[in-house]
Computed example of a mutant assay.
Amino acid sequence: METITFEIENGVALPTLNRPEVLNSINTKLIAEVRAAVAEVAKNADARALVITGAGCGFCAGADLAAQEQREEGMTIGQGVALAADIVIASHSASFVQVFGPRLGLIPDLGCT
């Protein structure tokens, strides 16, 4: 895997978004690798929990707007993964920003409704 690291230890599956140079922004390669990791968790009886984290100083900046393949494939901008979970744990200094919704009247990203 190129854009994430992945391990399962003591029943916890830990995929780590690993593109810190672009604040772990999402491109098509990262999406494919996260899907593969989640599929591995689904078939692994030893994995009882899934914790997604990010390398570097930020979890995920959202879509990589500079990625050429996203423009060619029509990838959507709002791809919120931070709140699309049963439980979300964040530090006191973490912030969740709805960039596109409040001023433009768009539907909130995944997990924010």
Rank of each mutant, 00 (worst) to 15 (best):
I31G: 09
L65G: 09
A49H: 11
Q98G: 08
R35C: 04
E73Y: 00
V34S: 06
L50F: 13
L110I: 04
F100Y: 01
V12I: 15
L65K: 11
V97F: 04
E73I: 01
C57E: 12
G80D: 08
L104D: 01
G78R: 11
E73W: 00
R103M: 02
T53P: 02
A85F: 06
A94Q: 12
A13Y: 05
E9S: 10
A36C: 08
P20V: 10
E69L: 13
E33T: 14
L106C: 03
G80H: 06
L14E: 06
L65V: 12
A94V: 11
I52L: 14
F96T: 11
L104M: 02
R35T: 05
A32R: 10
V88Y: 11
K43G: 13
L104S: 03
M75S: 14
T16K: 09
I8Q: 07
N27G: 12
V41H: 12
C57Y: 07
A49L: 10
C57D: 12
T53K: 07
G80Y: 02
G74F: 00
E72W: 04
S25F: 00
Q68W: 10
N27V: 06
L14D: 03
I8C: 03
V34L: 15
Q79R: 15
P108C: 04
A61K: 05
A61T: 10
S25E: 08
E40N: 04
D46P: 05
N24T: 05
Q68A: 15
P108V: 03
V38S: 05
S95H: 12
E72A: 15
D64W: 07
V41E: 04
F6Y: 15
L30Y: 11
I89K: 02
E9I: 02
G105T: 09
A90M: 14
L14V: 12
T76R: 13
E33F: 12
N24W: 09
G111T: 02
A63E: 13
L23E: 14
G74L: 02
G11Q: 06
A39T: 08
V22L: 09
M1Y: 07
I26C: 10
R19H: 04
V38K: 04
I89T: 09
I87N: 14
P108S: 06
E2V: 04
K43Q: 10
I52F: 03
A85M: 03
I107C: 03
E7I: 03
G78E: 06
D64V: 07
G56T: 07
A39W: 00
L104N: 07
I89S: 05
A49I: 10
R48C: 01
T53Y: 01
